[in-house]
Nucleic acid binder design. Structure first.
Length: 414
RNA sequence: GUGGGCGUAGUUCAACUGGUUAGAGCACCUGGUUGUGGUCCAGGAUGUUGCGGGUUCGAGUCCCGUCGCUCACCCCA
């Protein structure tokens, strides 16, 4: 049996890599225009970084991490998400001291050992942004605006923004208790996993897809009843700012993010053509996380977006523009050095230039040039070499002209 | 971790209830043009039918196992 990619991992082949490059370009571009700087962190980290931040009881930590024991004894883990590593870097390098407000973005591969399906892989890619230092609604709105801008510049249609607030510290624990009080009498109607969550993390019962449980949810208490006055103010201010930015959103009081560290504002961008895994981007505020990981109390907010899912939801994207490719055809073996020189001269003018290295016939090379989408072909055969001339053929018009070899640069400069 | 669907050329798919040498489109290569592409015409190459076993005179087709892919559940990007 020949080798193949590990389950849940994929090669990105040349036919797709241009789409990836285009996506990456737009992300870099928009992030930079909003004043965000890129941060790159290692692919693996101390396992405890994730168990402490993401939460021991989350699926990610309890069953999806690629974890191994290092030779020196510590436990290491391939990163399953990127907020925690970025927070770690923020603390480790005291970025908060360099500026009270840090705006960072990142992209790269993540690893989760899940059963693959549409929109879910074991190695996948996310980009995301994080802003450290501001507790104010303006920052929430800015973060969401960056996501909104990227998606609209990508031409993504059918995405909707869902918005919720989980409230801050105390109110969340009151709400948990209220949920437990509500569901405990109904316990025998809950699924096995929901019963477990009732103990560990009752908020998670809210986003069940089980239709039986949906009925029960109708009567459940709403998080909004437990917001503090400040939470309430914060959230409505965020909504006002989004409206003034003309960013449409839907409120969804049942949207609970799966990671433990979120507080106050949470949001998702949902795409309608992704199958069951429809979240293209998810994020929220995490005002306590920096502290949890050993830093000074620092409010922060960010999001992460799945790059595969973005590419999937924009099927007809990525036009390969190769109009200025030049194909140099040489028919005389002894002149191949000269052909290479000519190719380089044209490259120096900024064109992409390619040559045949299979010593194929003129016809085969022209066919090849056409297939590659070359705009122009330079032909040098015996006659041209003797006369110090070149044939230049324009493949779009089909016209061909003979020029003096010394006019090569001039021809391509015009 | 649980459940459904599917594995035949590079690719998309054929092959009636098991029947002789497993086919076609696209893609690829060559030629029609002693040195001219994209269109057209002619020709050519390509398979351990995922793998292993079983039933049978005979298996791509039926049975068992196994591996892989895929979709869904759980959860998430």
């Amino acid at each position: 049996m020949a080798f193949q990619t590990i389950k849940g991992t994929h090669d990105i082949l040349p036919e797709d890599s241009t789409r990836w490059q285009e996506l990456e370009r737009i992300i870099h571009d928009v992030a930079a225009r909003f004043g965000y700087s890129e941060i790159r962190t290692p692919i693996f980290e101390d396992t405890r970084l994730f168990s402490r931040s993401v939460g021991e009881d989350t699926d990610i930590v309890s069953k999806e991490m690629y974890t191994w024991e290092d030779r020196s004894g510590g436990s290491l883990t391939l990163r399953p998400e990127l907020t925690a590593p970025v927070v770690r870097a923020y603390i480790q390098h005291s970025l908060g001291r360099k500026s009270p407000l840090q705006r960072l973005y990142y992209m790269g591969p993540l690893f989760r050992r899940e059963r693959p399906q549409k929109g879910r892989q074991r190695q996948f890619h996310q980009f995301g942004i994080e802003a450290f230092g501001s507790e104010y609604p303006e920052q929430d709105a800015e973060i969401i605006a960056v996501g909104h801008t990227i998606f609209s510049e990508l031409g993504l249609k059918d995405v909707t923004l869902k918005l919720n607030s989980l409230g801050s510290g105390e109110c969340r624990s009151y709400y948990k208790k209220a949920l437990q009080d509500y569901f405990n009498p109904l316990k025998d109607q809950l699924s096995e996993t929901s019963q477990k969550r009732l103990e560990t993390n009752p908020l998670r019962i809210l986003d069940t897809k089980n239709p039986e449980e949906h009925k029960l949810l109708a009567g459940a208490p709403s998080i909004s009843d437990f917001w503090s006055e400040d939470d309430q103010k914060h959230f409505s201010h965020v909504q006002d700012l989004l409206s003034s930015l003309d960013i449409p959103f839907e409120l969804d009081s049942r949207m609970v993010r799966g990671l433990d560290y979120y507080t106050r504002t949470t949001f998702e961008f949902i795409s309608s053509n992704l199958g069951a895994q429809d979240a293209v981007c998810g994020g929220g505020r995490y005002d306590k996380l920096v502290e949890t990981l050993g830093g000074k109390p620092t409010p922060a907010i960010g999001f992460a977006a799945g790059m595969e899912r973005i590419l999937m939801s924009m099927d007809s994207y990525g036009k390969s523009v190769k109009g200025n490719l030049v194909y140099v055809i040489n028919l005389v073996e002894s002149a191949s050095g000269k052909a290479l020189q000519i190719a380089n001269e044209i490259r120096e003018l900024g064109f992409a230039v390619t040559l045949d290295t299979l010593r194929r016939s003129l016809k085969a090379q022209l066919r090849d040039a056409n297939k590659m989408g070359a705009g122009k072909v330079v032909i040098m055969g015996e006659e041209e070499i003797n006369n110090q001339t070149l044939q230049i053929k324009d493949l779009t018009t089909g016209k061909q002209e003979e020029i003096a070899e010394s006019d090569l640069v001039k021809h391509f400069t015009v």
